[in-house]
């Protein structure tokens, strides 16, 4: 998964800059403790950055590509932007959450992408060996983190990003999906659609059950399928209705944003 260096943006863009002093100290302490751990065989094995979590974007089971027409019921859609914040990324072990990360920004469509294919976004975490039973994800920005703004965060932190903050809502934009839909039937999508979802009320968490065995290096792939994200109870969102085409900028009108964010868990696939 990490073999394709160009498409793995994790180490260069996201992981290293977010490795703050605290993480470094923890890593250092872990490293210092290693020799002792080795003497007591009942202690869990401590690994360093052994666990790779990769996010992928799909449309209808296929890797997402920007500016590519997809059928959406009897309509054609295309997308040019998809990014999202994920909080409280945790593995579950013996009913307990083992926190891997407070927050990550998963940007499938960075400016630096060499072509239109959505990039895979990977993060590395240090995870002790053992059998885990699930993965928990928080869709959006957890309330305590969302209570602050970009200038409160250090350079390189995922929440330092000003482009993903909207002062009008006093909130980060948890998820951005943008594109166009063809409503006049000429097979060229012309009508803008955008879903900018934010504010504490739309944050939600879900746990996906799955046996994840960690023994040294391990990896897990999480996929988000945009077609599933816009399918509600088996029905595709009706894009002919203007109020379904764009999320409102009115902070008191979050219905569509809420609907999309609540549906994220149904659009999540563990590979």
């Amino acid at each position: 998964m990490l073999t394709n260096g160009v498409r793995c943006f994790c180490l260069y863009q996201t992981f290293l800059p977010t490795l703050n002093m605290k993480h470094r100290i923890v890593l250092f302490l872990l490293a210092a403790l290693l020799p002792f751990a080795a003497c007591k065989d009942e202690d869990p094995v401590t690994n360093t950055n052994n666990f790779t979590l990769t996010f992928r974007a799909l449309y209808d089971g296929m890797p997402l590509e920007k500016y590519t027409n997809y059928s959406f019921g009897d309509k054609q859609v295309l997308y040019d932007k998809f990014n999202t914040f994920i909080s409280n990324i945790s593995l579950i072990k013996d009913g307990q959450e083992v926190l891997l990360s407070d927050i990550e920004w998963v940007n499938f469509t960075p400016d630096s992408a060499p072509d239109d294919r959505a990039v895979e976004v990977s993060f590395k975490y240090s995870v002790p060996d053992g059998d885990y039973t699930g993965l928990k994800l928080g869709y959006g920005v957890r309330a305590d983190l969302n209570a602050k703004k970009p200038s409160d965060y250090p350079v390189g932190h995922p929440l330092y990003l000003e482009t993903e903050y909207w002062p009008g809502w006093s909130s980060y934009i948890f998820t951005k999906v943008q594109g166009k839909v063809d409503l006049d039937g000429d097979n060229t999508p012309e009508t803008s659609i955008f879903y900018h979802c934010g504010s504490d009320a739309v944050y939600n968490e879900a746990t996906m059950n799955r046996t994840i065995r960690v023994a040294g290096d391990a990896a897990l792939v999480v996929e988000f399928d945009l077609k599933k994200l816009f399918t509600f109870n088996g029905q595709l969102l009706d894009l002919t209705v203007p109020s379904n085409q764009v999320t409102s900028h009115d902070a008191s009108n979050i219905a569509l944003g809420q609907k999309v964010m609540d549906n994220f868990k149904n659009a999540t696939i563990l590979q």
């Binding site: 400016d111 970009p150 200038s151 000003e162 482009t163 903050y165 909207w166």
Partner: peptide, 11 residues
């Protein structure tokens, strides 16, 4: 053109 510097520096 958002954020404190009134640009997100995107393309």
């Amino acid at each position: 053109h958002g954020g404190i510097t009134l640009t997100g520096n995107n393309y």
